[in-house]
Computed example of a mutant assay.
Amino acid sequence: MIALLGKVGSTLVTGLVGAAAWDGVKKAADSGAVREGAVAAVAVGLKGKRHLEAGAERVRLTTGDIVAEARERVGEQAPPPGSDVGHGHDH
């Protein structure tokens, strides 16, 4: 009987803690704190994405310059930027 009362008490405490936690989540959602946090996280992600894209573009341009200079050194004429020379298939 004492073991049963211990289990009932434990279940009751777990339920009360869960209900309190749920009320806290509802209050936070109603106050806009959750939305504000989500907006801030997405804003940081967008800034990071822009930074990575800018870095990738710098790498692409630098690589193009290096390839063009290497072709020039071996006497090859570099194709003009944006040309389809050597593309290999039709669109």
Rank of each mutant, 00 (worst) to 15 (best):
V59I: 12
P81N: 07
W22D: 06
L5Q: 14
A56P: 00
P81T: 09
T62Y: 07
D30A: 15
V13Q: 09
E36T: 14
K49L: 06
T14F: 08
D30K: 01
K27G: 01
L61C: 06
A38S: 11
V67A: 14
P80L: 09
E69D: 13
I66L: 13
V44L: 06
V39M: 07
L5R: 09
G75D: 00
A20H: 11
A40S: 13
A43E: 11
S83V: 04
V34D: 03
G9T: 03
P81F: 05
A19T: 11
P81V: 07
S83M: 01
V85T: 15
T63R: 04
E36R: 09
R60L: 05
G82P: 01
A68D: 00
G18R: 03
G48S: 03
A3M: 05
A40P: 00
D30R: 02
A38Y: 08
S31D: 03
G55P: 00
I2K: 15
K27Y: 00
G82W: 00
E36A: 15
A29E: 06
H87W: 14
A21V: 14
G24W: 00
P80N: 09
V39S: 09
G64K: 03
K27Q: 02
K7G: 06
G82L: 01
G32M: 01
S31G: 07
A29K: 02
A20N: 11
V67K: 04
I2V: 14
A40V: 07
V34R: 01
D23S: 15
R71A: 12
E72M: 06
I2P: 06
R73V: 11
K47E: 14
W22K: 06
I66S: 12
G55W: 02
V59P: 01
R71M: 11
W22N: 10
V25H: 04
E57I: 05
G9E: 03
V42E: 14
H87E: 12
I66C: 08
V17R: 13
E69Q: 14
